[in-house]
Design a protein around this nucleic acid. Structure first.
Lengths: 251, 251
DNA sequence: CGTGTGATTGAAATGCTTCAATTATCGTGG
DNA sequence: CCACGATAATTGAAGCATTTCAATCACACG
């Protein structure tokens, strides 16, 4: 059952262009940490942050095993978090969206790899300065703690998905998650744009790309959705899909 | 694939006896939060804590959906964290050992259930008072943050186990985890005492009790271990077992 | 000692993986 | 702008692992 993940070849030719510059609070297009912070805290955070821009998908933000010096906060775009296993397989641990924090560290090193799936803008915080700031701003720290707890709940949800659901339900659950992200979902048309490949989805759901394709086919056959293109899905019955995941419908 | 978990009937007759009393720092048999704290912080935490004792396994500490008022810290014993699903299945999210924190909350309610597997002693912290304390003691809060991050790493490890490994490797990985806990593992004899049933293990590994039994049989057949009794395992080749999980050995 | 539960084993059915082949899509260069 | 080539996605079919149902064995408790 060793699913040696066939990783999509990264877009060649154009090396991701990195534009890094200091920014001041006035530059921010979006409030940091999702409106949780006071203007003063925003300013404190902004003081130690750098803005990074990756102009295309497929850019590595950091790699597992690397010395960790920064925590990252996504402003725009989607980033894939994954881990490579000794046998060559890959587990995608999650997709991170605007407002999410990245950069889980153990013993001074990143334990996961992070790669952009779309053009990305992010804030980068030096860990040492962040630590000091958190110690001097307990309320800010409490918000960070809340973020970490939120991630933990997400991870537990994924454990349940992997532990309990068959492939079709895993995919359905995943698509409903993606549906929450406004930048990629149009509620008017019920259209969802997927920033990741079938390989990414497969490695996230702990299955093979073929099984993902078959699960898509089943969901379409059952009238829950329509594949407009490989990267675009239209929901036809999102409520029914949610019931399907919960086991109330069909099987 | 809806594995409607057949939950072991809880030990009847003897209702868990709860002995709750205030304690002062001097009472502590074990440092709180694993030696991370200064004596002053220990004292601060102790001031707001209550000691609880459950004299037998099978006692509910809290249940999913309940209004959450406390965070718990295990002093002694093992607690099972799980979630019940709408279709009657159950996912065990983890087993918590001495030094671990319990009581994940979302919107004021516990999102998981916690039940003792052995006699248990724990410290109970009122959430409101804890919050104030964390705000006034940023270093203590940072230790809590570290704990949460640790839990997040654990959850990600389990995602990888569920996403990548077959049943035998899942079990092997689980047994090696248990082996870390000194109170249940004798390094002299390589004997491990398991505080949980096959049902619990199955629901943790996202499989059935039958498959767990078969996985045990395989690991025994391959010479990695010996089942001394259903609740006791002797490792014969722990290094080989670790290599087996990593896919280096056999398949 | 009997009874009930947990654990194990057997056997059939199911779902998933894997390998192979085909089709669709996207980026590129003409 | 279109055609081409490469890669992604899908579908088919065989093999394999796991689930499920059923039966047996083992053990703890009264």
């Amino acid at each position: 059952m060793v699913r040696r993940s066939r990783v999509r070849s990264e877009p060649k030719g154009r090396r991701p262009k990195i534009i890094a510059r200091e920014f001041c609070a006035a530059d921010q297009t979006r409030p940091l940490l999702g409106n949780l912070l006071s203007p003063a805290e925003q300013a404190e955070l902004a003081r130690i942050a750098t803005v990074l821009t990756y102009q295309s998908g497929g850019a590595p933000i950091f790699s597992q095993g690397e010395d960790a010096h920064f925590l990252y906060l996504i402003d725009e775009g989607v980033i894939r978090i994954g881990r490579h296993l000794p046998d060559g397989a890959r587990q995608v641990l999650g997709f991170m969206w605007p407002g999410d924090l990245l950069g889980l560290v153990e013993e001074g090193r990143y334990i996961n790899s992070a790669d952009s799936l779309t053009p990305v803008t992010l804030f980068r915080f030096p860990l040492e300065r962040l630590r000091s700031l958190l110690l001097s701003e307990p309320l800010l720290q409490l918000h960070m703690l809340a973020k970490a707890v939120h991630e933990l709940r997400n991870a537990q949800r994924q454990i349940i998905v992997l532990g309990q659901l068959n492939t079709a339900k895993r995919l359905a659950s995943f698509l409903l998650d993606c549906r929450q992200h406004v930048a990629f979902f149009g509620s008017a048309t019920e259209q969802l744009r997927l920033p990741m490949s079938r390989f990414d989805i497969a490695d996230y759901l702990g299955t093979s790309p073929e099984s993902v394709a078959r699960a898509f086919a089943k969901l379409e056959r059952d009238g829950f959705l329509r594949r407009a293109s490989p990267r675009s899905v239209q929901f036809l019955n999102a409520d029914g899909l949610a019931r399907f995941v919960r086991g109330m419908s069909h099987s």
